[in-house]
Design a protein around this nucleic acid. Structure first.
Lengths: 250, 250
DNA sequence: GACTGTCCTTGTCCTCTGTCAAAAGGGGGC
DNA sequence: GCCCCCTTTTGACAGAGGACAAGGACAGTC
């Protein structure tokens, strides 16, 4: 089911294939927020010529941990997970990315984690070589990428506190609050009701727990009236204060 | 004992105090590896004029979690920890930095984690405003900072796998192997004997464990003949293969 | 050399989370 | 609407690691 459909194969470094006309970026949903947002129109057109739009189905893996880093991309639409594994196959999700986020490992030999679509997704894909070259010649782009990477690093480190020092209840509560913020659109406040893009197993893989513990804790919070779970994927936050309280100390 | 000696106070943004002459960088131990390494001589001299050398004593905290991000620095000598805490005071060390590493949060409002010296240390300190401005005007510096930040992010994510999915034995073994590599000098192979810059409590804080578990696991590995612990801070790796084996599956 | 404070080790118990197993629930296909 | 499969929930149990407590070792001081 999880077919290894290697996008890199279909994007040979020698001949990138722009599949839309140069005005494509004008209508891009995420242009303002993505790293290309502050480029001048002609620069963005030049970058656009290096890339191509790609659809990815839910479950499809875009890059594999340890593979040569041959592609990078902007996320236009959808949600994807970044995951890494121990030698014997235990998985940890090390990041979840949303529209306007950047994926891949520029300026590096190999990809340190896999990237897999959680929902159907649309990407703006570049070969790494072409992107690296463009970024070296366009400091403004490099600077946006730096700011984004610094933000990602802050988020990763905040998550290390969660993984190392929080108990199951705190982990779940923190996760739900994080989701309610990250799934909200540009400038919008946190959502009180949202569809999780993750299965229970994937939630467990984000939090360093087992699926059973995730399920039990969520059921407990439902019984406590803090959240409602109208169906498998939907979460309603009924008592945000209480949830925030759970997130810091159980 | 942990005095709040605020370095930022002694480095007013209005009047940075270069405390050495402009040729100082010429003798800098870490110049080649630090982010300033690829600057032209005159550019480095200009950067040098913005900064100043600072000594920090073991135990002293250079920046505090949540404070305004007013300073950044290169580490010239010594080891420091980056740490963050939960609301109720449980601490997680989110990074350990060594000579030539960069600390602080450029292009950001506040510092997401504390920075505390583990050993006596020497820093090359800049006010953030001055550094940010210089970096914006010197893409080469920005690019080096980007590469370093990408590396830090990879390391942070690898550590997330450890925190979320490894057991105590695997954590300790991974940590010791990591130390034996990171404490080795430029280009040198991993060390088979080294002095830990961390106390047992700090090792616990890096690994998301308690001090007792750290102590027990290290004692067990000593009894198994994998390592020797001639004194509190020294670690000898007697059987690296076995240790590597422990790091992946206990 | 004795003392004292801190750090580390060891012991005991307990609890949280993982493991294994089985039942229940939902969604998609027919 | 019904069925089947997969996901999720629930249950029972076990074990790893945490909490608490006490003892031991080491460094610095007097």
């Amino acid at each position: 089911m999880m077919m290894h459909f290697d996008l890199a194969q279909t994007a040979p470094a020698a001949a990138p294939v722009p599949c839309q006309d140069a005005s494509y970026c004008q209508q891009c949903d995420v242009r303002a927020r993505a790293i290309c947002g502050t480029l001048e129109d002609d620069e963005r057109a030049a970058l656009n010529r290096l890339g191509r739009r790609v659809m990815v189905q839910a479950g499809q893996t875009v890059m594999w941990e340890g593979d040569d880093a041959t592609i990078v991309a902007n996320v236009i639409e959808g949600t994807l997970k970044l995951s890494a594994s121990t030698g014997d196959g235990r998985e940890q999700i090390v990041g979840v990315v949303y529209p306007s986020d950047f994926i891949g490992r520029p300026f590096g030999r190999s990809t340190p984690h896999s990237v897999t679509a959680l929902t159907d997704a649309r990407l703006c894909l570049f070969t790494r070589g072409a992107f690296d070259g463009f970024a070296r010649n366009h400091p403004e782009l490099g600077h946006r990428l730096l700011q984004r990477t610094l933000d990602d690093l802050d988020r990763a480190r905040a998550w290390m506190v969660l993984l190392g020092r929080k108990n199951a209840r705190e982990k779940i509560a923190t996760f739900l609050l994080d989701m309610s913020h990250r799934l909200a659109g540009e400038g919008a406040g946190p959502l009180d009701s949202f569809a999780l893009p993750l299965s229970r197993q994937q939630v467990a893989d984000v939090l360093g727990l087992t699926i059973e513990t995730v399920s039990r804790q969520m059921t407990d919070m439902k019984r406590a009236g803090i959240i409602a779970l109208p169906n498998r994927r939907t979460v309603d936050i009924l008592d945000r204060d209480q949830l925030a309280c759970c997130a810091e100390a159980a």
